[in-house]
């Protein structure tokens, strides 16, 4: 069953078209990576799923119910973690979670139990200070706890790791990953290694629509082969090497695309025969980053 379905979504701001027939779905229990460059429309899509922004046209359903702009009833199924969550700094984490629970209509006993579990999960159980003293990473962890307070069926994370240091990112990814048992996750980001680490399904958003969609391994398989990157010792040799090998020059590096092992041996032979001094030669595995760059035409 699909927990989230987005069909033919359009949105423009003035003359600028942000979404142009966006269609995708998130299946129950999965972590869905939503990739796109800055300004691609990821946050716009998230806001529409939450009913905070009115779509130009198209339809969004969460758990089979249609999302309405304004006070959408579908939000009872949803937990939301903004990119930089803002809290009431005069409260403690426990007071904040109590308010979240009360707003969602939970009972006091339930709120107390759930707050304890979540603060334990995000590593803030022993934190007695007010939120104003929290680091960015701690705020992000509290953000996950508040998003999960009412056991949502869909957790929406809008670039949750983009403002964090590597350690903070690792912690957040682990927490999101551990939440997948009880909730589906849609996770927007432009950090591709994060997607490779935790996402089951992935979609690349470009020019307002989904350019590629599938599991991470399916997407990687869309590239027919890996690249060979050669850095000549002299920058003047780059053009000559590219001509000999049938490659392209990017910033002084010769790139031969879709190169098999046989092609690699042939490249080494050509370099040796022509006695071209090189600094580095690398046979790179296909990764999401290359695929992403191809999709966005860079």
């Amino acid at each position: 069953m699909n927990i989230l379905e987005v069909k033919d979504l359009h949105k423009s701001f003035g003359s600028k078209t942000v979404l142009d027939g966006l269609t995708f779905s998130v299946s129950e229990g999965s972590v869905f990576g939503f990739i796109g460059r800055n300004g691609a429309g990821k946050t716009t899509t998230m806001k529409m799923i939450l009913g905070l922004l009115q779509p130009g046209s198209g339809e969004i359903t969460v758990c089979g119910e249609r999302v309405r702009y304004g006070n959408t009833p579908t939000n009872k199924y949803v937990g939301c973690l903004p990119d930089v969550p803002e809290f009431y700094s005069y409260m403690t984490a426990r007071e904040y979670l109590r308010l979240c629970g009360e707003v969602t209509g939970m009972k006091q006993s339930e709120i107390k139990k759930r707050s304890g579990e979540l603060l334990e999960l995000v590593g803030l159980a022993n934190e007695k200070h007010r939120i104003k003293g929290y680091s960015r990473g701690m705020k992000q962890r509290l953000g996950i706890a508040q998003a999960l307070i009412n056991k949502p069926r869909l957790l929406i994370c809008d670039e949750p790791t983009s403002a964090l240091d590597p350690l903070g990112r690792k912690e957040i990814l682990e927490i999101i990953s551990s939440a997948r048992g009880e909730t589906s996750v849609i996770f927007s980001t432009h950090i591709l290694s994060d997607v490779e680490k935790i996402c089951d399904d992935t979609a690349i958003l470009e020019k307002g629509r989904i350019a590629l969609c599938g599991t991470v391994s399916e997407l990687k398989a869309k590239r027919s082969g890996s690249d060979v990157q050669i850095v000549p010792a002299s920058a003047g040799d780059a053009e000559k090497t590219a001509q000999l090998l049938g490659g392209e020059v990017h910033s002084g590096t010769v790139i031969v695309k879709n190169a098999s092992q046989d092609k690699m041996l042939s490249i080494l032979k050509t370099i040796s025969e022509n006695r071209i001094p090189i600094l580095k030669i690398e046979h790179t595995e296909p990764d999401l980053e290359q695929l992403f760059m191809e999709v966005i035409g860079k």
């Binding site: 939450l50 009913g51 905070l52 304004g70 006070n71 009833p73 939000n75 009872k76 949803v78 937990g79 939301c80 903004p82 930089v84 969550p85 803002e86 809290f87 009431y88 308010l99 979240c100 707003v103 969602t104 209509g105 953000g143 508040q146 998003a147 307070i149 009412n150």
Partner: peptide, 15 residues
């Protein structure tokens, strides 16, 4: 302006 209301609006707090 700070966005502190967003988590509550998405939790069903009516405007």
């Amino acid at each position: 302006s700070s966005g502190s209301i967003i988590p509550f609006l998405t939790k069903g707090l009516s405007r």
